[in-house]
């Protein structure tokens, strides 16, 4: 079994991307911290053949649900916190427009998009995590991406421009 430091090094960036997409910029750091603290606690008992990405995303998925519930109970929801003014630094930023576009997706689509495109999980594992069939997970990701291309239409412009 590898030293846990290696796990943090190898998968920390991936978990951060997933947290940013699923819980948003405000809560991403808390979600990451709670995910790795839980993972480290359980680590010595992890099956050596386990798929580490899927294991970490599963923990992050649960932490994201906890955070969403806690936010829902709070008098001031994250939605009501005004966006920082002048935060127009897309496309290099996770804040602002991208998060607004992600947040507008149905939850299943957001999860499927994040777990497939940011964590690299196969649809079969995403289905195991979010419920439903592998095909449903694939469709949710495709629908989510399709919506994002209209609500956050930055990608493809360079490629299409270059192809012309």
């Amino acid at each position: 079994m590898q030293p846990f430091e290696q796990i943090v090094h190898d998968y920390g960036p991936m978990v951060l991307r997933v947290c940013r997409a699923v819980v948003g910029p405000q809560d991403a750091e808390d979600a990451w911290s709670e995910t790795f603290l839980s993972a480290m606690t359980a680590y010595p008992g992890l099956d050596p053949d386990a798929h580490v990405e899927a294991w970490l995303v599963t923990i992050a998925h649960r932490k994201a649900i906890d955070i969403a519930r806690a936010n829902a109970r709070r008098p001031v929801a994250v939605d009501d916190i005004p966006e920082r003014p002048g935060n127009s630094d897309r496309p290099e930023s996770w804040d602002g427009d991208l998060w607004a576009a992600l947040k507008a997706l149905p939850k299943r689509q957001l999860q499927a998009v994040a777990y497939h495109y940011l964590a690299g999980l196969p649809y079969k594992e995403i289905a195991a995590l979010t419920g439903g069939s592998t095909d449903a997970a694939r469709r949710a990701a495709a629908d989510g991406i399709k919506t994002l291309r209209t609500t956050y239409p930055r990608d493809g412009t360079e490629e299409k421009g270059a192809a012309r």
């Binding site: 960036p13 991307r17 496309p91 290099e92 495709a142 991406i145």
Partner: peptide
């Protein structure tokens, strides 16, 4: 398929 995350810092 137009990955919307392509331009983000990895």
């Amino acid at each position: 398929t137009g990955n919307p995350f392509a331009g983000l810092p990895w």
